[in-house]
Amino acid sequence: MDGSQLRDLIGQKRPRYKEQYRTLIESISKKGDSSGKGDFSSFGAFYQTYMYAIVIGIKLDKQNFIQASEKTNDFFVFSQWSPTSIRDYILMMLLNKSEDFGFKLVELENAGTEAIEAFVIELIRQIEGYANAGFEYLQTKWDNENMKFRNPFVFVNFLEELS
């Protein structure tokens, strides 16, 4: 398997989020409107919200994995996320952690198709873990410090708080 095949394999996956965060995600995302109009500060597309949540999860160094019994929703296919540079940056951060979740890059070079499939599935599970940890953090803020979301700098403020 070559690099482009691996990219395609990852790209066709749809990371999921927990149903319990749907209202929050809808509240802080505005489909087709990136202007941030309205009472609350908001992102444009859903996948930007998702990428933001992943970064929050990574900064927290915390994961909130989806349990088998939990209701979930699929996200947009990974290959369609944009900007691609930020999507790739997230991928890079996950690859940096590959040994932590049991995959040495060098071993992947010799691995069979099934092993590569297993790696991609785990990679996506890891992404979901960080994203849902990020949503959990944002949900707590939304529930307890809702007024903060009226500040246009709210999402920058959260990043600064975690730096």
Binding site: S42, Q48, S85
Partner: peptide, 29 residues
């Protein structure tokens, strides 16, 4: 209104603030 666009800017995305070490780490890998 532009703040959230700046988070996902092509050239200097604010969302990656403080994460520059990851590039060096990847290079080493």
């Amino acid at each position: 209104k532009n703040i959230n666009s700046m988070l996902f800017s092509e050239y200097s995305p604010w969302i990656l603030m403080g994460l520059q070490d990851q590039i060096m780490l990847f290079d080493n890998r």
